Structures are given as C-alpha cells and as structure tokens.
Amino acid sequence: MTEYKLVVVGAGGVGKSALTIQLIQNHFVDEYDPTIEDSYRKQVVIDGETCLLDILDTAGQEEYSAMRDQYMRTGEGFLCVFAINNTKSFEDIHHYREQIKRVKDSEDVPMVLVGNKCDLPSRTVDTKQAQDLARSYGIPFIETSAKTRQGVDDAFYTLVREIRKHKEKMSKDGKKKKKKSKTKCVIM
C-alpha cells in the first residue's frame, strides 16, 4: 500500500485542523484551538488504489514558523489553505509557496490551493482571484467548507493525484537520464 505524506499549511484560523478532522473523523470542530502540530493517518481508496494518507496539520501562528522547514522537508505534497473571508490569509499563500519551493529546492512541488469556509456569506476573496492565482502557479484550486464537508475529500484526493503525477514524471525523467548515460565512448 502506497503511503502519501501530505502537509496542510496556511495562516492561523483558516480551518486547516477543521478540514483535516472532517476528512479523518467526519465531524466539524467549530471551536478554535490553535494547533502546534498534529499528525493523522487514514486509509482510503483513490482511483481504485488503496493508500495510506499521513497528514500533518501544522501551526499557522507566526511564533511556530521555525518548525516549518522541518515538516516541509518531509512532506510530499501540500494543501495551501486560505479562508475566503480573510484576504490576508490569501496573500500569505505566496509566502508559504515560496518557502516550500526553497526548502524542497524545487520549482515543481505537488500543491493544491484550497479556499476554505465557502459556506460563509462574508467572502472577501473572489473565486476568480483564487483561480487566477492557482493557474499562475500551475496547481489545482478547490473551494471547501469544513463545516458542510463540501470539497473536503476532493481537496485531499486531488493532492494525492498531483503527487502521483509528480512521481510518474520524475521516474520518466530518471529513465531518460539513465538511457543517456548508457551511451559509451570508444577510443581507438
């Protein structure tokens, strides 16, 4: 069974824990209790493949930012979460993405942009803004509501699919490099 290491990042209060708990335990946590770091595991079937999701729910508070490099190193894919009623959390996505790329030393890291709290009427981040940002990053965008469960499975499952595509691409690139290195030079 394939294991996928997913990391949920975003500013404090955007609903990272609520999304994760909704996926794992099928219930909505409405009281806000700032996370330092929590880890969850769940076995699911995605596109006919049974897999184990190892999900790291991270601290959004700035005082825990020193811990970010460590979990970013171990993560295979990242859910970059903002709240649709919090423009600052949307603007912060850029910083999370840049930090992930720096730590992973790669421009090509599996990510999904997630606009959470889409059940709320007080939207300050337009869907088109988020779609445009995701398009500019070359990553999928999904709106979710941890409260109603809308888009929750889709967000995590899409990230797994992005990781699969990335692994497939990397193995193809690896095979191309191996083929090239088999060419021999004969000096007579």
Rank of each mutant, 00 (worst) to 15 (best):
Glu3Val: 04
Lys5Met: 09
Leu6Asp: 04
Val7Cys: 05
Val7Thr: 12
Val7Phe: 04
Val9Tyr: 09
Gly10Leu: 00
Ala11Arg: 10
Gly12Thr: 09
Gly13Glu: 12
Gly13Ile: 06
Val14Asn: 12
Gly15Thr: 03
Lys16Gly: 02
Lys16Val: 00
Lys16Leu: 00
Ala18Leu: 00
Ala18Tyr: 00
Ala18Lys: 03
Gln22Trp: 07
Gln22Arg: 12
Leu23Tyr: 08
Ile24Glu: 02
Asn26Tyr: 04
His27Gln: 15
Phe28Ala: 01
Phe28Thr: 01
Asp33Asn: 02
Thr35Tyr: 00
Thr35Asp: 00
Glu37Leu: 02
Ser39His: 00
Tyr40Asn: 00
Gln43Tyr: 03
Val44Cys: 12
Val45Met: 13
Val45Phe: 07
Ile46Ala: 12
Ile46Pro: 14
Ile46His: 09
Asp47His: 11
Gly48Gln: 10
Glu49Ser: 11
Cys51Ala: 11
Cys51Asn: 06
Leu52Gln: 14
Ile55Arg: 00
Glu62Met: 05
Ser65Gly: 08
Met67Gly: 09
Arg68Asn: 15
Asp69Val: 01
Glu76Val: 11
Gly77Pro: 01
Gly77Arg: 01
Leu79Gln: 03
Cys80Glu: 01
Val81Ala: 05
Ala83Tyr: 02
Ile84Phe: 12
Lys88Ile: 04
Ile93Tyr: 11
His95Ser: 14
Gln99Trp: 11
Ile100Phe: 06
Arg102Ile: 08
Val103Lys: 03
Val109Asp: 02
Pro110Tyr: 01
Val114Met: 09
Lys117Pro: 01
Cys118Glu: 06
Asp119Glu: 08
Asp119Thr: 14
Asp119Cys: 07
Leu120Ala: 13
Thr124Arg: 07
Thr127Asn: 08
Lys128Arg: 06
Gln129Cys: 14
Ala134Cys: 10
Arg135Thr: 08
Gly138Thr: 03
Gly138Ser: 06
Ile139Phe: 05
Asp153Val: 07
Phe156Pro: 02
Tyr157Gly: 09
Tyr157Lys: 12
Ile163Cys: 03
Lys165Gly: 11
Lys167Arg: 06
Glu168His: 05
Lys169Pro: 15
Lys169Val: 05
Met170Tyr: 15
Lys177Asp: 10
Lys178Gln: 12
Lys180Arg: 07
Thr183His: 07
Lys184Gln: 10
Ile187Val: 07
Met188Ala: 11
